[in-house]
Design a binder for these strands. Structure first.
Length: 150
DNA sequence: GCCAACGTTGGC
DNA sequence: GCCAACGTTGGC
């Protein structure tokens, strides 16, 4: 059982969108390290849903991995923003997982709150300039965050 | 909209 | 395989 933090711009796809839809394929990740993390994710792993590049950056709630990594279909779609001309059906470059809505926090945990917590200093998300859209979270960090959200 | 951080590209 | 140039991310 692993914990992951996944970023999304709420203008594109928000936690509320996930709640409404129930589940969503996490397509469009075009970074090798993030891709590798997704390939390591297992069904029922917990996902912290992070809102980035918005008025209130922070963790909006929890999701769960509902499907193991599979080839991201958007890489083969010339009409998609995420089209990759170098990807082949026989040799996909990019993968995605499916996530499903799990739980809302009582309160949105804003970035300021995360930053002020000493126990969360180690989180990758706290590193300045960190751009990874999928990062692992430790059980200890998760515990602290869960407390902040309840 | 600014800008620091950092991943990727491509010429050599 | 180095590294400068370039593009993107994301908080502010």
């Amino acid at each position: 059982m692993q914990y992951w933090l996944m970023k999304s711009e709420p203008d594109e796809f928000s936690f509320a969108d996930l709640e409404r839809k129930g589940r969503e394929p996490w397509t469009g990740v075009r970074n090798y390290q993030a891709r590798n993390f997704m390939r390591a994710a297992k069904v029922d792993d917990i996902v912290l849903f992070y809102h980035s590049n918005c008025d209130e950056p922070g963790i909006a709630g929890l999701a769960k991995v509902s499907k193991l990594a599979f080839p991201d279909p958007t890489q083969f779609d010339p009409k998609s923003d995420y089209f990759d001309s170098k990807a082949k059906q026989s040799e996909p470059r990019w993968f995605c997982i499916e996530v499903k809505f799990y739980k809302k926090f009582k309160s949105h945990i804003d970035l300021e709150n995360l930053k002020s917590n000493r126990e969360l200093k180690s989180m990758l998300i706290m590193r300045p300039g960190n751009r990874l859209s999928v990062t692992p979270v430790t059980a200890a960090e998760f515990k602290v965050i869960q407390k902040l959200g309840s």
